[in-house]
């Protein structure tokens, strides 16, 4: 049962979902109301919405990701840094055990972050489209807390949160205008600099600079990286995790790039990190074409 709940994109059990079997890629689109067999003629006669509403009610009785709310205040906003530090430690040691070289460890961390970045882009933008004050009364338990997102596919812990059965009003109803999609490299970087950084670390990043040497290079500066503050004396750059997040955001927003991390210690900030975003040449070409 657990399997079915957490895995809605892969598991299809027709027995528990009599009305709809979900989208089947090999079949193509299905009509809203598949022609009902003659035996269930009463349902068909009861009107066009009979079949699907019963199906829908069958779904809602089951706990599912679709019952949760995306509202920021629907969940606890904060997670203990200590708890996350343990998780992060486990993440790193897992990567280390599976890898043969330093760069491979970093690559694994990068990939972990990448999938988070893809999700953050959609989630944060969608959230900021909602008019302020909408649906803030909700008090259900944490679902999309920072932990669950950051741990991504590495944990099953979030199953516990999937207990809400009541349907909340969708956030989309509270949206009058969707936030603008970012079309320029600077715009999307500012989104990372402010929105994303605030969401992840509780503050905006310290600086966003354009490289004076290369057209396609930008630098995000974090004087005191939060994730790696308990990590020292290693040649593994654990902030590749954050690089992955940034790259995931930029890639899925169609700004293909490479993000690398460089330690640039300063007297007051021993761990000062500079994230170098190097966009692919075609991003600039597109800029020029669309100017």
């Amino acid at each position: 049962m657990k399997q079915k709940i957490i895995n809605p994109s892969t598991s299809v059990n027709t027995a528990t979902h009599p009305g709809s079997t979900g989208y089947d890629y090999t079949m193509g689109p299905q009509q809203t109301l598949p022609d009902l067999p003659v035996s269930s003629g009463t349902i068909a006669a009861s009107g066009t919405n009979g079949g699907s509403s019963t199906a829908a009610s069958a779904h809602t009785s089951l706990p599912s990701v679709y019952n949760g709310s995306l509202h920021p205040h629907a969940h606890n906003q904060h997670v203990s840094l200590a708890a996350f530090a343990f998780l992060f430690q486990e993440l790193i040691s897992q990567a280390r055990n599976a890898s043969k070289s330093v760069s491979e460890i970093e690559m694994r961390l990068h990939r972990n972050g990448y999938h988070i970045g893809i999700r953050l882009l959609e989630l944060l933008n969608f959230r900021s489209s909602v008019s302020p004050g909408f649906g803030s009364t909700s008090s259900s338990r944490a679902f999309f807390s920072k932990t669950s997102i950051n741990s991504s596919s590495n944990t099953l812990a979030l199953n516990n949160a999937l207990t809400t059965t009541q349907d909340e009003p969708s956030l989309a109803q509270g949206i009058s205008h969707m936030k603008r999609r970012d079309l320029k490299p600077v715009e999307i970087l500012q989104f990372i600099h402010s929105t994303v950084w605030t969401y992840l670390f509780g503050r905006v990043s310290d600086d966003l600079v354009k490289s004076s040497e290369r057209d396609n290079e930008y630098m995000l500066v974090d004087s005191a990286p939060m994730l790696s503050q308990f990590i020292s004396s290693t040649n593994v750059q654990c902030d590749f995790f954050v690089c992955g997040i940034i790259e995931g955001i930029l890639d899925s927003a169609s700004f293909p790039c490479n993000v690398t991390i460089h330690s640039v210690p300063e007297p007051n900030f021993q761990q000062r990190a500079v994230f170098v975003v190097r966009f692919e040449q075609q991003v600039l070409e597109r800029e020029a074409l669309r100017a």
């Binding site: 599976a98 491979e104 690559m107 694994r108 990939r111 990448y114 999938h115 893809i118 790259e247 890639d251 899925s252 169609s254 293909p256 692919e280 075609q282 991003v283 070409e285 597109r286 074409l289």
Partner: peptide
């Protein structure tokens, strides 16, 4: 283990899109 970097989204000639 084989292709550590293939999680990147494949982008088809972004500039000409």
């Amino acid at each position: 283990d084989d292709q550590p970097y293939n999680h990147k989204i494949e982008q088809d000639c972004v500039s000409a899109i």
